[in-house]
Amino acid sequence: MNLTLKIWRQAGPKTKGEMVTYPVTDISADMSFLEMLDVLNEQLNARGEEPIAFDSDCREGICGMCGLMISGKAHGPEVTTTCQLHMRSFSDGDEITIEPWRADAFPVIKDLVVDRSSFDRIIQAGGFISANTGSAPEAHSVPVPKHHADRSFMAAACIGCGACVAACPNASGMLFTAAKITHLGELPQGQPERSARVVNMLDQHDREGFGGCTNIGECSLACPKEIPLDVINQLNKDLRYALIHHGTPE
């Protein structure tokens, strides 16, 4: 198939970017979306134009490194990661716009590459259970009811790609934050730090410049791991409890 790509080009964090049009031809339906961009980059390289920078690593939908706005949708038209999107989802003659994630908390580094270190800093604020190596009790000493373990796992499936933020009109990072709150909050091991965790992570979320959540739900629809919206209810519940019982953070 032949396609017209309109791609965001931006030389550096402080330079002004623009959409540039690239026609591509002979694209096979079996190619992944990123392989289609590889083909374009080989062509650009051959004619002396600098290839388009974009992130990807595992290319099997689990590392969370890739992420593009494809014709206005985070990760494109299917519920999957950009790397697992294949060209059979498109038709001959399509015009496709390709942009980086757009959010203040994810500044553009170059072309389609953004800086998501704000997510790491949210985790640093409390997205963990404090258990030093060697201090762990025998694994079977604390049984975990299966429905709690399953719900914890469901939330832990988050790959930190940032599609939730990109899809949200407020550029809120709430689904990401709430998935971690739920993953750890469902487990007995996560209880001692539960209140401090929600307060501190949310505080960091706000400091990073993510928007507030107004329950729109685009985040969950865009999530390639289908993290449900109700993890945000869990976050709000935990936050209420924490503020009533422990007060606001310092």
């Binding site: 259970i129 762990a136 025998e138 079977h140 049984p143 975990v144 914890s152």
Partner: peptide, 22 residues
């Protein structure tokens, strides 16, 4: 065996049986 203990303490959501054990 220590690895499993450590990971469970960190909150790794391993598959469990209905009795709550791994």
């Amino acid at each position: 065996a220590n690895i499993i203990d450590q990971c469970v303490a960190q909150g790794v959501p391993f598959a469990r049986e209905y009795g709550g054990l791994l």
